[in-house]
């Protein structure tokens, strides 16, 4: 809290997904190189389930994959999943916080909460991606990412398992790039090289 934020020289990617999200993530995360920028993922899953999603992706990805622990410093080469039943937030010093506060759009974790706090911490050094889903979570969050100078990518609704989430994000963020799923990974890695 010393006013030096956003910290310069580090970038991050935030991804929000809901219905159809596991499949969509499978088309992106395994393609990222092991030293890629940190990726923070919020996917809606039923609460009171022990999450196996991090383990599921750990086997497929070159980056390390973990379920986020409170106060973990955000590090390159790592994919952080929001734990089920907690909001995942980004602090100004680029560490992670968790919270049990009320669900947003009936969702905990909430994509908007992750995106809005990440936007404040990373500013223009952030890429926000909204994938398949059947609710409106993520639209306000992606708006915040773009307003802070970051880049917005949205999965093309045509071909998405559930279109409402990408369509809501497009309505809120007309300047975001809308890409077919298979081009999102290329867009990310092309940018990284």
């Amino acid at each position: 809290m010393d006013g030096r934020y956003p910290l310069k020289g580090s970038r991050a990617v935030v991804i929000g997904a809901s219905a159809g999200g596991l499949q969509a993530l499978s088309a992106i995360l395994p393609h990222l190189p092991e030293d890629y920028d940190p990726v923070l993922v919020c996917i809606h899953l039923p609460p009171h389930k022990n999450s196996v999603v991090a383990e599921l992706f750990a086997d497929k990805c070159r980056m390390s994959v973990v379920e986020a622990d409170d106060k973990a410093p955000i590090e390159a080469g790592t994919i952080y999943f929001a734990p089920p039943d907690y909001h995942l937030l980004v602090e100004q010093d680029h560490s992670l916080s968790l919270s049990n506060e009320a669900p947003v759009y009936f969702s905990r974790p909430s994509i908007d909460v992750l995106f809005e706090t990440a936007a404040e911490a990373y500013g223009e050094d952030l890429t926000g991606i909204v994938l398949s889903g059947a609710n409106e979570d993520g639209a306000a969050g992606l708006r915040a990412v773009i307003d802070a100078g970051g880049r917005g990518l949205i999965q093309m609704p045509k071909g998405a398992y559930a279109r409402l989430m990408p369509e809501s994000a497009i309505a809120a963020c007309p300047e975001a790039r809308v890409l077919p799923l298979e081009q999102i990974a290329a867009e990310l890695t092309g940018d990284a090289s």
Partner: peptide
């Protein structure tokens, strides 16, 4: 208190 969360609340 952790800023991101208390600010939201």
């Amino acid at each position: 208190y952790a800023m991101a969360s208390i600010k939201r609340r």
